[in-house]
Amino acid sequence: MWEVLASTTFVIGLLQAALRTATPLLLAGIGELYGERSGILNIGLEGIMLIGCLFGFMTANMTGVPALGILAGGAAGIVIALIHGVLSISLGVSQVVSGVGINILCTGLSLTIYRAVFGASYSDLPRAPGMTPVQIPLLSDLPVIGTLLFSQLPLVYIAFALVPVTWFVLYRSELGLKIRACGEHPMAAETVGIHVARIRYLCVVITGFLTGIGGTFLSLGLLNFFRDNMTAGRGWIAIAVVIFGRWKPTGIMGAALVFGLASAFQMRLQAIGIDVPYQFLLMIPYVLTMLILIVTYGRSAGPAALGKPFIKEQ
């Protein structure tokens, strides 16, 4: 058994799977980072991801073009996120409650739309053309890391490229300064002439888009079909990833990779038939989230105004 675990093919396969599993978490996590940095907590990620997953799949199924599917998933994510935006920014209601509502709504919405479009037949599962790996010239020919890092699905590159981009936007651009000001002290931001509501809406849209395309990675990348509640808790884990990653782009990348690795390891142990009950393996990411929160407690660096409604005085 240990020879299998130590073999190069096993390790490469494991890391490759980890990168793929981490990608939707990273996309949604970076998306949520923008929202939370501006002061908007969105616990409706699970629902937004599910809707992105469905619309990406439907569009690719109908047009045959996966790229259009990804865009459609992002657009659907924006629409749902805007519901949260209106409720939490313009109406100033509880962001937690709104997020819970969005999750329940999206579960129903996705099932209803799927049944209405494709019917309830399980024997003839509709499929969509999936994304195909993109080989980076020269680099993909490198031994070992060539296949691992440079012949991945396009969204994997995009997700990891977003990490430095987000770092730059948040810490080196005027927009980032405004976003962080809204999340730390919206009143002060408003006083110096920043449109808090406008910045927060922008961030909510970014959250929706990135979470939506994170969802399309499930139905067009990892698998080529849609099934009920396909996201299986990934949206919730993405929120944990943001906390575990200390609201920093690089931290979120690290956190997403830890989760990706745990989940990939679990699947691989099952595949080689190691006699551990699969329920315990499936528990790993959830237990890990809690342990990590416990270990890193007190050192959280969340935005000061996170989750607090801010309505401009008339």
Partner: peptide, 9 residues
């Protein structure tokens, strides 16, 4: 489920 979600929102 859809109606239940709408009710909450």
């Amino acid at each position: 489920n859809l109606i239940q979600g709408l009710v909450i929102l």
